[in-house]
Design a protein around this nucleic acid. Structure first.
Lengths: 331, 331
DNA sequence: TTGTAAGCGTTATCAG
DNA sequence: CTGATAACGCTTACAA
């Protein structure tokens, strides 16, 4: 490893001068500076991040704590965070809390121990960890008072609900994966708001909820709204097994716009997160907190975007009636 | 931040003694040692990783370079690598090359600059990067001569092919996403080997290939084998749109056993990677290389596991014939 | 414009 | 058994 000292000795100056020439901070004669720079690049000099971190107290590394790395959203968050971090000259250290709240704290202290400058947390369902004495931001959902930034899950649900109600559905099944998740609770609350007071709804959770779907449809429901695309796919599977077609017999919506949303048939009407904006904002706030500003930023809910595809339609009864109306008008 | 020096001063000994007491290296009287340890934990002492890294020349951090963080396999690799790393006291710094070979090299030097001790690379399709002077392992596929460890994509394809041939299929569509990918090429080669010489096959790629599926089925094919579960889902969508049922009219297989494999209907017969073993082995080899051993380990192909579900069956023509045979036998 | 020197927190060597 | 002390590579006043 070539060091500053190395270069300094080779060229016959002091390490301070080399440091200054390379960083452009102190004043160094242009002639000397270029000589130093060329030698440095010839030698393939790389500053030691350890030494720099030791001296400056900043590692240039951020920690990312995810509740579960296999969470389908993780790749998108990781990617956008990684891009946003890179443009700020920062690196990202990952830690997995594997669905366990205790491990989450462990991961947190692990990262702190590794000297990260700040932490991005996507909390475990139902928890709100408090990292001690290190700048942090939380990406969760609006109803978590500690959240820094989040997708507007409530508003997203509302858009979806409005869409379904607007099509004429008046009895709807709301399907969640895990009732403990605040994110999913917010999504469902939003859906209910969007559906409005005229629509009846049944909320069902998990595998049992999934299995209950055909029964609920028989009972008169004409639409199924899931809190994730994967759950929607599962519902679709139950429906076709029961001989029910989408969107003919029942309309279906998902959440998150995962790749599978366009791979299934019919393509899934769903709602997309603006992960890029979320990542950018999270890092902006985090950078500010690392710089020592008071954490007085209001929490931000980034709007979600409705993606209309072919899994939703006017309910069959209504569409027949419309046809009849039209025939009546034409005759 | 409490430092060794801090503790040393408080207790009236030298930093060296504190260091020794805490690490258990040098011999320190039991009485003093416990006194030091209790004070340390009271003060919440955390060793500075920067200082340690500077001194020892080891950061305890590994870099992970992925071709594209949104690759559906990334979460599983990341998680298993992260678990394996944690148990070795190492951290993982991620870098995304975003589908771009140039960025891949950039990511590599980035990580090196951050002082990682070693690198795990999942290469960009069709590339084989050579990190300069830093221990590294490559996770790709057996036909890449630089691969350190990989799933046995060839063998996996072979198992799947054998299964399909065993059911009696004699004309099969092989569906890949991107012909540039060595992984997918290996999977398809394996499938062909498994199908054996008696079966005809058509290889098709990408979106166009997907669209050609119904036509190929009309032409007499009775099974579709995809190089990923997501592609299989896409094929399923095309099939049902064409009024063809799975596995009634056509058998369907995927690859990787993603969560969606069990969410679709019928559940997908596919093949699973033993990502855990792959991660463990990658880190074992990497640790050995970091420790300075010659990189003479033979490359390892970890067997894949066939997951039989309900998307594959005996071809219709054959099953009718069997019924007839049976009726004949019974009469 | 350049050099000197101190110090970041650890660890390792070598005396005491 | 314990303590000085140097050293890792870098930054940054401050002095020349």
């Amino acid at each position: 490893m070539t060091s500053l000292k190395q270069i300094a000795r080779d060229i016959g100056v002091s390490t301070a001068t080399v440091s200054n020439a390379l960083s452009g901070k102190g004043r160094v004669s242009e002639e000397l500076a270029t000589r130093i720079r060329t030698l440095a690049s010839e030698l393939g000099y790389r500053p030691s991040s350890a030494a720099r971190a030791l001296k400056t107290g900043q590692s240039g590394i951020l920690g990312l704590v995810m509740p579960d790395l296999t969470n389908p959203l993780f790749p998108r968050i990781a990617q956008n965070l990684s891009i946003a971090a890179e443009s700020r000259g920062l690196g990202i250290l990952i830690a997995d809390s594997r669905g366990d709240a205790a491990r989450q704290d462990e991961a947190l202290t692990q990262l702190v121990g590794r000297g990260v400058d700040g932490i991005v947390i996507v909390p475990q369902k139902g928890t709100s960890p408090v990292p001690d004495g290190i700048p942090a931001v939380v990406i969760n959902t609006a109803s978590d008072p500690r959240t820094t930034v989040s997708a507007d899950h409530l508003g997203g649900g509302r858009q979806l609900g409005t869409h379904i109600a607007g099509l004429g559905h008046r009895e709807v099944v709301l399907l969640g994966g895990d009732a403990v998740s605040e994110v999913q609770q917010d999504r469902i609350r939003g859906m209910i708001e969007g559906l409005g007071p005229d629509a009846r709804h049944h909320v069902a959770w998990g595998e049992a909820g999934l299995d209950a779907v055909p029964h609920l449809i028989e009972g008169g429901a004409t639409a199924v709204m899931a809190t994730s695309d994967l759950i929607a796919l599962g519902a679709h599977s139950r429906l076709s097994r029961a001989g029910l077609s989408v969107p003919g017999d029942v309309s279906l919506t998902g959440f998150d716009d995962l790749p599978l949303a366009t791979a299934m048939h019919p393509e899934l009407t769903t709602i997309a997160q603006d992960v890029q904006t979320i990542a950018e904002h999270a890092l902006d706030v985090l950078a500010r907190r690392i710089a020592g500003h008071a954490p007085d930023d209001p929490s931000l809910a980034v709007p979600m975007r409705l993606v209309l595809r072919t899994s939703t339609a006017v309910p069959r009864a209504l569409s027949r009636q419309q046809e009849t109306d039209q025939q009546g008008a034409n005759s």
